[in-house]
Design a protein around this nucleic acid. Sequence first.
DNA 1: CTGTATCCGCGAGGATACTG
DNA 2: CAGTATCCTCGCGGATACAG
Lengths: 123, 123
Amino acid sequence: MRDPRLHCPLTVAVKAISGKWKLYILSMLSDGTPKRYTELLKSTCENLTEKMLTSQLRELEKDGIITRKIYPEVPPRVEYMLTASGEKLCAIFEPLYEWGVDYMKTQRHEKLAWLEMGLRELS
Amino acid sequence: MRDPRLHCPLTVAVKAISGKWKLYILSMLSDGTPKRYTELLKSTCENLTEKMLTSQLRELEKDGIITRKIYPEVPPRVEYMLTASGEKLCAIFEPLYEWGVDYMKTQRHEKLAWLEMGLRELS
DNA sequence: CTGTATCCGCGAGGATACTG
DNA sequence: CAGTATCCTCGCGGATACAG
């Protein structure tokens, strides 16, 4: 039997942004200006390797979230930017981001309460 | 060096809903009525195993998205429901869902155009 | 009824070296 | 500059059996 979750728009959306470096790449592209390969690779202090950048870019391209434009020059130049779908996607990150902020605040409060309870028990 | 993405609210939010069965479980709980273990396990035509259900429930609980209430009865009864954070999370699924609908429509149109182009080339 | 306990395959993610 | 090509690790997800 086929899996209906595969055709659920919500599942599709979550899968589109699941991938270790996709949010990072999308955030880099979300200002609207095209970015070059090296630009994306260098503008992070993390250990984003060439293989990972390439694979994540290819998936986003295959999913129609970003476009890849090759300029026939020497040295070669390739630019990545958001598609219309990609732009819409970035736009709706906001509520998710807001939830994350609120959530992290809540988690901190609960952890603090938990630690204080531990202190009281010891004294 | 620490990874700043780990503390990005957006990354945190996406991680919270990434997991093969989490959206499914959340959707089951989103109507507000508590659900029992077996209820969650059975109300799907898919191959959701006990181990997977348990592990996904434990992660959601650890993340403060759902609560687990044990009734000291025989036979044992356990009910799961959304926390305040969990409810807020489900509420913001809507824009993500809407994007998914629009996105799937776009993808279909592009695939159709691509297929028609192939037909024209052959005739 | 509500779970653990094992065992395992597979693929995402990563390190390193090489190339048009 | 913008990538491939290999090789490897690790843990998610799954199958099956057992338990309080």
